[in-house]
Design a protein around this nucleic acid. Structure first.
Length: 436
RNA sequence: GACCCCGUCGUCUAGCCUGGUCUAGGACAAGAGCUUUUCAAGCUCUCGACACGGGUUCAAAUCCCGUCGGGGUCACCA
């Protein structure tokens, strides 16, 4: 039975790198039909916080990675002490009292030799242990160190495959030493390449958002983010890029993961998010949108037309980069006081279009049925009568109705806006009196 | 600095293991165009890479060595 683990430390949010590690673990275990263990490494009492645990769990859930078992290292101190004592009794470790510290630390005595780890991704890696210092197992304050707790837990939880970030490669020989000292069976190791920021080096807050929850807030879709992460250091083959997670489970193979660090490219994520948004269920999008619209005071949670909202979502769906674009782009459907971009007004509404707008308003009244086809037909007739090019009137009308120069097709906008609102917004540009 | 990992278009990658089908394929980005009612999407096209040097070989992106470059780790943090 394959057992893998994802072991975040609740000293911060779940970030892009962690999510990718979780994803590859999850993928691997789903394909093999094993168990996915979540281990919260909260041994550092000062830096760990329950809020971060919640945040990590929420983010993992949002991404769709469910776990089979969950453990907290802070509740397993007895186990670590037990094994430290064992090493002490066997003479493999010694105690040391540091000046200024109260208790005694338990330190593992490193024996010189060669450690070879056979990494599933990188192959054999050799280390000279004479270069490794003696390892603290239990600190003076009684808390276990990372490497020690990690080894004890991985063995105790019967982890068969340790799939983690590249940054742990140099920890591995230290851990292997402990596995051997404790007589534990070694798991298989697979070290994933790191994800770097656009400016090189680790992905950091300076180069952009790192927390998964931030991407959620920014309006990215979980499947899109997962799909993007999937393509960092791995490819399904056959030039496939957009791939369903269940399909990826079938194709994934850890040994095929790249060795090279990948750079996180927000532009490609944006493209991918748009691809998913285009095909997303408008009903579901509406659901995620509702709280955002309520917050902006665009709708009242108890009294809004859901079907109408869904039709608006459909209107904008193909052109959204993130869900959060919607409230900004579709604001004109919700506000009473239309805000017109100054640039747009200057460009399209500075000349007097009173006659044209008036005629169009009348045209709308004469329409048999107020639907997209008839609206367009009415408009086309009008420009023909006025001997104008369609676009000379389309742009000003769009600005008058939406306040923007960009947006969905004008006739759909008019249809969704409704006759009354359309006419009212156009009327405001009809100048009083005659032109003389 | 020491140790370890890595090195194909600006970015993600295919190819590398099992040399020849690679005048190196795809995607994002960028640029041009089509469409046209703007933007987005879509379609078409363009730009653009085997880090460098040496081997091995009839033949190297693919195998070997070196150089250079990038990254990671060197805590009583995790």
């Amino acid at each position: 039975m394959v057992r893998v683990r994802f072991a975040p430390s609740p000293t911060g949010n779940l970030h892009i790198g962690g999510a990718r590690t979780a994803l590859f673990n999850w993928l691997y275990v789903r394909a093999k039909g094993g168990k996915f263990i979540l281990r919260i490494e909260d041994t550092d009492k000062l830096r760990s916080a329950p809020e971060f645990v919640d945040e990590i769990l929420n983010s993992l859930t949002w991404l769709g990675f469910s776990w089979d078992e969950i453990y907290y290292q802070s509740k397993r101190f007895d186990l670590y002490h037990e094994y430290a004592q064992k090493l002490l009794k066997e003479g493999k470790a010694y105690t040391q009292k540091l000046e200024g510290k109260l208790g005694e630390a338990i330190i593992y005595k490193v024996t010189p030799g060669t450690i070879i780890i056979d990494d599933l991704i990188r192959g054999k890696i050799q280390f000279d242990t004479s270069l490794i210092k003696d390892q603290v197992l239990i600190k003076s304050d009684g808390t276990p160190t990372y490497n020690f707790a990690c080894v004890v837990d991985d063995a105790d939880m019967q982890i068969t495959h340790v799939i983690r970030g590249d940054d742990h490669i140099s920890n591995t020989p230290k851990q292997v030493l402990l596995y051997e000292a404790l007589g534990f069976k070694l798991p298989q190791f697979a070290h994933l390449p790191l994800i770097m920021g656009m400016e090189g080096g680790r992905l950091s807050k300076r180069t952009g958002a790192t927390a998964i929850s931030d991407y959620r807030k920014m309006g990215y879709l979980a499947p899109a983010l997962v799909n993007y992460l999937l393509l960092l250091s791995w490819a399904p083959g056959n030039d496939v890029e957009l791939i369903d997670i269940n399909e990826a489970v079938k194709l994934f193979d850890v040994t095929q993961v790249n060795k090279t660090a990948a750079t996180f490219d927000l532009k490609k994520l944006n493209w991918m998010n748009n691809q998913y948004l285009k095909n997303a269920d408008p009903e579901k999008l509406a659901d995620t949108l509702i709280p955002m619209l309520v917050e902006k005071n665009y709708i009242h949670p108890d009294s809004f037309d859901r079907n109408y909202l869904v039709s608006l979502v459909k209107l904008f769906q193909p052109r959204l980069t993130t869900i959060a674009d919607f409230p900004d782009w579709a604001d004109f459907f919700f506000v009473q006081e239309l805000k017109i971009e100054p640039e747009a007004e200057k460009k399209f509404l500075s000349q007097d279009l009173s006659r044209e707008f008036k005629l169009f308003i009348e045209k709308l009244d004469k329409l048999g049925k107020f639907d997209i086809l008839n609206i367009e037909e009415g408009f086309r007739d009008l420009v023909k009568e006025l001997n104008l090019e369609a676009k000379t009137l389309i742009h000003p009308i769009r600005v008058a109705l939406t306040g923007k120069t960009i947006g969905p097709g004008l006739f759909e906008v008019i249809y969704c806006l409704g006759k009354e609102r359309t006419q009212a917004r156009l009327s405001r540009w009809i100048r009083g009196g005659s032109n003389a």
